[in-house]
Structures are given as structure tokens and as C-alpha cells.
Simulated assay, not measured.
Amino acid sequence: MDLKLKGKTVLITGASQGIGEGLARAFAEEGCNLHIVARSGDRLNALKSELEAEHGVAVTAHALDLTEPRAIEQLVTAAGDVDILVNNAGVVPSGSLWDVDEAKWRAGWELKVFGYINLTRAIYPRMKANGGGVIINNIGNGGEVFDPAYVAGTTGNASLMAFTRAMGGHSLDDNIRVVGVNPGPVDTDRIYNMLKKRAADWLGDAGRYEELQQRYPLKRPAHVHEITDLIVFLASFRSGYTSGSIFTVDGGITSRRSVI
């Protein structure tokens, strides 16, 4: 299936590892030129060299902390015109209302929740002026499963779901599509860290985290490509009538009403 993405310019935040790195690889395979953003310059530069050598695309690495003052303005100026924005950066800490104090809560939301909102605010007018584009928010199924042990995350993700629907409901008037993806557990370091914390809390031994993994559909988290392939498709013209929608990819976990 030809997605006709070759030559498109894609900006991906949180691109140094996990789903973000997987997205950079997937879009590069489609022939897209990339702007990749994360705090870790070393990881970004290594990924840049690899993708340019393998796929012959142009990759620009932006080693930035998007929570810093003027960082988003700096990024948007440096990146210039982009066709596709994938908001992906940020991890909100897990824990109960009493585990996550105000400082940790605000720090988690500053990058993920406000980072998505502020980068969209900055990019959207440029896309509109250039005739259109696509904004995809990688959110998380915590916004659908209201887990008190992930209270800051579930609240933040639910906010981003509402933001995505609010923006995407009318964005096609400007030839811009705004779409959300809600992954469940994915085979990255983040999910194993969470499982170990839950195993310590529930079973008294972080080393028993694999027992919790057995509760997942297929007894495993999603492969990274099972998330990134969908996002690449949603970014393409073949999904051209899709906006204001959120796609959950969690093997049915949300329908079970449990994050584990």
C-alpha cells in the first residue's frame, strides 16, 4: 500500500527512545524527512546518522527540553514548515493522589499535557497558512481507564483526549486533521518500570512483574510497530477523512476496565 508520504516533513517529539524512536524509523522508511526532538542529544544524533544512512532522508536533531521557556518557539522557528506533527514526548508519574504531590504532578503535565497543547498552538497556524497538515497526539489508554493508582496520568490523558476531539472536530475546515492514538502497554522500558512498581506494591516483590504481564491480552504488551504503523497510516492521505477521532490500541484492555 503506497501511503504517498515520501518527501513529507515530519516533526516527532520524544523521539530518542520507545514509541518516538519507532515513529522516526517508520516515517523514515516511508521516505519522510524528519525533525526529531528529545532532551538526549547523543541518542538523537545516533538515530539521525542511522536513518540518513539507511534511508537517504534528511534528519534534523533538536536536543531540547520543551518545558524550558521559549523552547517551543525555538523549535518551531528551527523546524520551519512541517506537514505532520506527532506529539509524543512526556511521561506522567504513576501513583495515587497522595503518592504524586503537586510538584510531580505539575512537572509531568508540563511536558506531556501542556507540551502537546502549546506545540499544537504554535504549529497549527503555520500548517493552515501552508494549506494543511496532520497533527497526531500519542496519548494513552489511561485516559479511558480511570485508575486511581495512575491518577495524574489518567487525568492528563483524559484532558488530551478532550483537547484532540475539540481541535479535530473543526480542523478540517482548515485542511488540518487532528487525531489521537491511545496505546495500552507497549514493549518499552516504561511499561516494565510500571509493572515492577505494581509488583512491588501488590506482590511485595518487584521481581515478580512478569506475573502481572501474564494478565495482558496475548500475555504480552504491544509490539512498538503495532502502534507506529497505525500512526503512520493515520498521517497519510489514505486516512484523509479522519479527524477528531481517537484510536485505542490495547488488545481490549480498556473494554476489560483495567490497566493490567
Rank of each mutant, 00 (worst) to 15 (best):
H223V: 12
T9H: 04
E226R: 06
A89P: 02
V37Y: 09
D174H: 10
T155D: 09
S239D: 03
Y150L: 14
S96W: 09
L85G: 08
G41Y: 10
Y241L: 11
T188S: 07
M167Y: 15
L111K: 11
T154S: 14
G133W: 02
T242A: 11
R70A: 15
A15H: 02
R257F: 12
A58F: 15
N175V: 12
R177I: 12
G56E: 00
T154H: 07
A129F: 15
W109Y: 08
R238D: 00
M127T: 14
R220D: 15
A89T: 08
T120H: 12
T13N: 03
D2A: 07
G204F: 09
S96D: 02
G180C: 09
A152S: 10
A53L: 05
D174P: 13
F114N: 13
Y116M: 12
Q213L: 11
P148F: 00
D174Q: 06
A24R: 01
K48V: 04
L75S: 03
A38N: 01
G251K: 00
G184D: 09
R208C: 06
L97Y: 04
Q74G: 12
E73P: 01
A63H: 06
D173N: 15
T164N: 04
Y150H: 15
E54N: 13
G7D: 04
R238P: 00
R39D: 03
V249R: 13
N141G: 08
R126M: 08
V57L: 08
D81N: 12
I176P: 04
A28V: 08
L203V: 01
L160F: 05
K104M: 12
I139H: 10
V224A: 02
S171H: 06
S255E: 14
S255W: 12
L195I: 06
A53S: 03
I246S: 09
V100I: 11
S49D: 06
T242S: 14
T67K: 04
G204C: 01
F146H: 13
K8A: 02
N175F: 00
R190K: 07
I176T: 04
L11Q: 02
I176F: 02
G153Q: 11
G251C: 04
A79Y: 12
L111M: 07
E30F: 08
A15P: 09
N138V: 14
L203T: 03
L75E: 03
L111R: 09
V76M: 05
F247W: 14
G156W: 00
T120N: 14
C32V: 04
D83L: 08
A107I: 11
K4A: 03
C32H: 00
F233P: 07
G80R: 06
R215A: 13
I246L: 10
V59M: 09
G115R: 02
L5F: 03
G31E: 01
D101H: 01
V186C: 02
G41K: 01
A235C: 13
G140S: 04
G184T: 03
G156Y: 01
